[in-house]
């Protein structure tokens, strides 16, 4: 078993000063970054041989499907569980995502992503949970397209990589735009398509995207964010033009079911 040096940016709490701490950790076969952090839990001693506190980070599923363990590994935002030690340059440098409020060490608070999902009404409205037969038929091609977007884990990697997500902007971020498409492509969801387009036409919406295209490069689920955003750009523009022609439509909108 060989050893690896880990350099971790730590911070005891949101108002504390960040500091770097290094660890020398034995590497087992097929180890990932999570295994290294687990090893520090078993033996919380730093490179200088001084006892320290175990490093705090977020993780659940460890198979890249829950989205919890996002962090910046050697400068790139990604899932720690899928970062195999053998494939990483050494020493391995771990930092928390910088676009979210810090909780402790490598753990951040990504609540704002979930709040954004409320703004864009990211759900298919249903009349209730009672029996109403099957849903609408969906063409396999539409399902394929939706499925890809629906694998988004709200992990935040695209937010980290996007230069337009920053303290001076309200930009909801690439993933949020993709979610608009996810629900607008569903036959029931499409009934309220315009409301979602309006939600990203204003502040923090699609106009804030400057087309840096970093989002797609870091997306662990390979969601085609760039082309989705381009498509939504056309749709919001078209919608804006139509509104200007016809005036704002009146209707009950995306009301409460039942």
């Amino acid at each position: 078993m060989s050893d690896v040096i880990l350099k971790i940016k730590r911070q005891d709490g949101p108002n504390s000063r960040p500091y770097w701490e290094e660890f020398k950790v034995p590497v087992a076969p097929k180890a990932n970054v999570i295994s290294l952090l687990l090893e520090i839990q078993r033996n919380p001693v730093n490179l200088q041989g001084k006892p320290t506190t175990p490093v705090i980070w977020d993780c659940n599923c460890l198979e890249e499907v829950c989205g919890a363990c996002s962090m910046v590994i050697n400068g790139v935002a990604r899932q720690a569980c899928a970062a195999l030690v053998d494939t990483l340059s050494k020493p391995i440098v771990l930092q928390p995502l910088s676009k979210f409020p810090l909780v402790r060490d490598l753990m951040v608070d990504r609540q704002k992503m979930f709040e954004n999902l409320k703004k864009i009404k990211a759900w298919v409205p249903i009349d209730g949970t009672y029996y109403m037969g099957p849903g609408p038929k969906v063409a396999p091609s539409v399902q394929d397209e939706r499925y890809l977007i629906s694998c988004c884990m709200t992990c935040g990697c695209c937010m980290e990589a996007c230069p337009y997500v920053n303290p001076k902007s309200n930009y909801m971020g690439p993933t949020c735009m993709a979610q608009v498409k996810l629900f607008n492509a569903h036959p029931t969801g499409a009934m309220y398509k315009d409301e979602r387009l309006d939600a990203i036409a204003g502040d923090g919406g699609i106009a804030d995207c400057g087309n840096a295209q970093n989002c797609e490069r870091v997306c662990p689920k390979e969601i085609p964010l760039v082309s989705i955003i381009a498509e939504l750009n056309r749709e919001t523009a078209f919608r804006g033009f139509n509104r200007w022609l016809k005036g704002k439509p009146k209707g009950p909108g995306l009301a409460a079911p039942g």
């Binding site: 249903i126 949970t129 849903g135 629906s150 029931t188 969801g189």
Partner: peptide, 9 residues
């Protein structure tokens, strides 16, 4: 069917 109506792909 209910999950289908909720838009599960």
């Amino acid at each position: 069917y209910l999950m289908d109506r909720m838009g599960v792909p």
